[in-house]
Design a protein around this nucleic acid. Structure first.
Lengths: 243, 243
DNA sequence: TAGTGGTCTAGACCACACT
DNA sequence: GTGTGGTCTAGACCACTAT
């Protein structure tokens, strides 16, 4: 029995020890770490507890375990970067808020609507709203989604919720995937006027397509962002999870 | 004892069952799922095995467990988006390759070098390289990192490795964090010429700063991307991990 | 054949949350 | 107190990998 005073689980200490050995370079990419039996013996703990520690390391992608062979230190990766689109992506400070400009019904005759792959003649809702930070407009959002009878869009939802939430509230099926493309474009004169910029000045464009479990598109969003007032911040860590 | 024929672990089946109940709406945000004891009894398995299934659901952020209370269905989130900067971020098709343009030594008198927070007078390496896809230049990269004696930069590393790897090979300490800012700018005439664009046309700018465990900046990279030949693709899933 | 990780059990004690 | 999840044990059998 271990001492329970220190509140920190033994499997966590084991994982942290190995993590430090990897960070310091004692264990290098490709090295095999001691077997579960050896670790259990040297720490004086049972194999199940050892496995729990190794599971933490595997979750953080610091090791890989191979059945019949052993556990091996993986190559360190820093290339997967996480952006939280919900977390204030603009300059820090004042809170964000939305203002709904227009709600229109469209047929499937325009390009965004066609991407929704609806039956011919099906109706599409087209939303246009502005994203404010303080008194400044920092982005223009255009959204298209299939019109479902009996699933009204409440204005409160439209004003405040972010894109995946708007779609979720309006659909029967649960949205499970969000494909995002980040690119650059020049502003149309209408967009430039809204954003207080010169026409043809550059802007960040974020396109989102939300899919159901059956891979059916449930909504499309184009977000045109003011180049100075909207930056995407992201970061990646060598290890993630509970370590 | 369970039947081992079906190769699919019981804890996984349990997790998948609950996942389906969440997806279908039978279990909603905030609902408590059955206790570990109840699940163990209804599946005829031990509590440890139940816990393993619930760990999968927790890892996928589908449930949250609270000590002394129970496990609850979380709110569905689609706002965290993952970009793999290593995974071909340009138009699909031909492979990417790097070409080193210049390697210079700089003092800490320019802005990027100052961001590295070195001692006064310390030397900085400045790399400039081009990212090709096929015959097209799709991005211009500028990198700054502290100059370390006895840690030479091999050309092969400079030609092929991506930014975190270049930094990792040149440093004593292991890089553990990569902060990224994605924004928009207009091309200088020199940049425009390299990219085959008009001066002042828009471009995507990706700035990366890599930090050590001690939060010391180990390298800075500015990447200016051709607006039509380089798009950032990303996606997010409602649940991640092994489910 | 021996060694490895993968799955699972049937208990135990603990800390925490309710009432 | 009762019920919950959190930790941990000392075994067991299996499947895979090496030799």
């Amino acid at each position: 029995m271990r001492d329970m005073k220190d509140m920190i689980p033994i499997y966590y200490r084991l994982a942290d020890d190995i993590k430090c050995q990897i960070e310091s370079g004692q264990l290098k990419h490709g090295d095999m770490i001691p077997t579960e039996g050896q670790l259990g013996e040297s720490y004086g703990i049972s194999r199940m507890t050892v496995r729990r520690g190794l599971a933490l390391l595997a979750e953080a992608k610091l090791i890989e375990t191979v059945k019949g062979k052993g556990s091996f230190v993986t190559r360190l990766k820093l290339s997967r970067v996480v952006i939280d689109l919900q977390d204030n992506p603009a300059g820090s400070g004042e809170a964000l808020r939305y203002r709904l400009l227009t709600v229109k019904f469209a047929r499937d005759n325009n390009v965004p609507a066609q991407e929704l792959k609806l039956e011919v003649g099906a109706k599409v809702i087209h939303l246009k709203r502005l994203l404010y930070q303080g008194e400044h407009i920092i982005a223009i959002e255009n959204k298209w989604m299939p019109y479902l009878k009996g699933k009204p869009l409440l204005e409160t939802q439209l004003e405040y919720a972010n894109f995946p939430e708007v779609v979720a509230k309006h659909q029967d099926s649960v949205p499970v995937r969000n494909d995002v493309v980040i690119s650059v474009n020049t502003l149309s004169s209408e967009q430039a006027e809204l954003l207080g910029e010169e026409p043809c000045s550059p802007a960040l464009v974020i396109k989102q397509v939300i899919y159901s479990k059956e891979d059916k598109p449930l909504g499309i969003s184009y977000m045109v962002c003011h180049k100075d007032r909207f930056q995407l911040r992201a970061n990646s860590y060598l290890y993630s999870g509970k370590l």
